[in-house]
């Protein structure tokens, strides 16, 4: 019934719309598309969907989540960056958003998109990645893992969310610091990468805590270390790489919301307000807690600063890692 009324109201609004000056004041007047550049089941998707649901309450329009996966997220990010800046396309992306243009530079190719094509709306979460292996794997600790990897270089395979994706960057930073060589098997996102680990097709995975928390609790996976600067609340027994003596191995997989640059100011404001309301929404907070990915909210100005600093740090790390496949 509510739907019918809504439809009627929209219909009525629509009939009146032509008689009003162009771009009527009522943003949004039709569904908004949220691009998630990874398949369902990864960090971006797990953060994007609940926040979309919470934002719908404020915006009074459906937010349609679209997973457009591929190339470490570059496919979907490029789609969002070049979308019409009318406020009806938003993007939920991960830290890798800053890496991909840098990687394109590294290979001397035309970048899929540039960072100045996107305007930040808000930071939603920031979690350190966790190194996980199957619970029947021989390694009980990160030390075992490194020793074994040194003994047989280029045999242990790890899955990632794509070349220069977040999960690849994290692992590459660790491998460079520990001076080990691993086999890299890229997938289209964290979800398929996790499936590959569970299916024994790869032996290790750096993952955001959200997607693997349930599997760790169920005893299918074993965490060896985390990339944070302090231990994770959910896994207090798991040491950080910094504790283990790898000083520079620090990596966060953060999820932020963006819009194409040039989105009209009223629309940006409405989106920021809706996000601010959404992160306080009890349903949303509860969902994120269940996912072991506590909300870390920053509004646009603050987030922009955080993003700039993070991008600079990742660019430096990328140069150190260099060209890899």
């Amino acid at each position: 019934m509510r739907h019918r009324l809504q439809a009627l109201a929209t219909c009525a609004a629509f009939l009146l719309l032509p008689w009003l000056p162009a771009l009527a004041q009522t943003y949004p007047d039709h569904p908004i598309q949220m691009i998630v550049p990874f398949p369902p089941g990864g960090v971006a998707d797990l953060a994007g969907r609940p926040v979309a649901a919470a934002m719908e309450k404020t915006l009074k329009q459906p937010i349609v989540v679209q997973n457009r996966a591929g190339a470490g997220g570059a496919v979907g990010m490029a789609a969002a960056a070049s979308a019409k800046p009318d406020g009806y396309t938003i993007l939920v992306a991960l830290s890798s958003i800053s890496i991909i243009p840098e990687a394109d530079k590294l290979f001397d190719r035309k970048p899929a998109y540039t960072l100045d094509q996107l305007a930040p709306i808000a930071l939603l979460s920031a979690d350190p990645t966790v190194l996980v292996v199957k619970s029947d794997a021989p390694w009980k600790s990160a030390k075992d893992f490194v020793e074994d990897a040194k003994k047989r270089p280029d045999t242990i395979a790890f899955a990632s969310s794509g070349v220069y994706g977040t999960l690849h960057m994290a692992m590459a930073m660790f491998a460079a610091a520990a001076d080990i060589k691993l086999r890299h098997v890229p997938f289209t996102g964290g979800g398929p990468a996790l499936t590959a680990l569970l299916g024994n097709n790869v032996q290790a995975l750096a993952s955001g805590p959200g997607p693997v928390a349930a599997q760790i609790k169920a005893g299918a996976l074993r965490p060896l270390a985390t990339w944070g600067n302090k231990r994770l609340e959910a896994f207090p027994d798991v040491p950080t790489f910094i504790e283990l003596g790898y000083k520079d191995v620090e990596f966060y997989i953060w999820a932020g919301m963006f819009a194409p640059k040039g989105t009209p100011e009223p629309a940006m404001k409405a989106l920021r307000d809706a996000t601010r309301a959404a992160v306080k929404d009890p349903d949303f907070v509860e969902t994120m807690k269940k996912l072991e990915s506590p909300v870390t909210y920053m509004d646009a100005p603050e987030f922009q600063k955080f993003w700039d600093a993070d991008a600079a740090r990742l660019a430096k790390a990328l140069v150190k890692i260099g060209r890899v496949q």
Partner: peptide, 16 residues
């Protein structure tokens, strides 16, 4: 498609 099913379809001049 638009009015009943709310599939977004483009409109042109005079809202047609």
């Amino acid at each position: 498609f638009w009015t009943l099913l709310r599939v977004p379809l483009p409109t042109g001049p005079f809202g047609l």
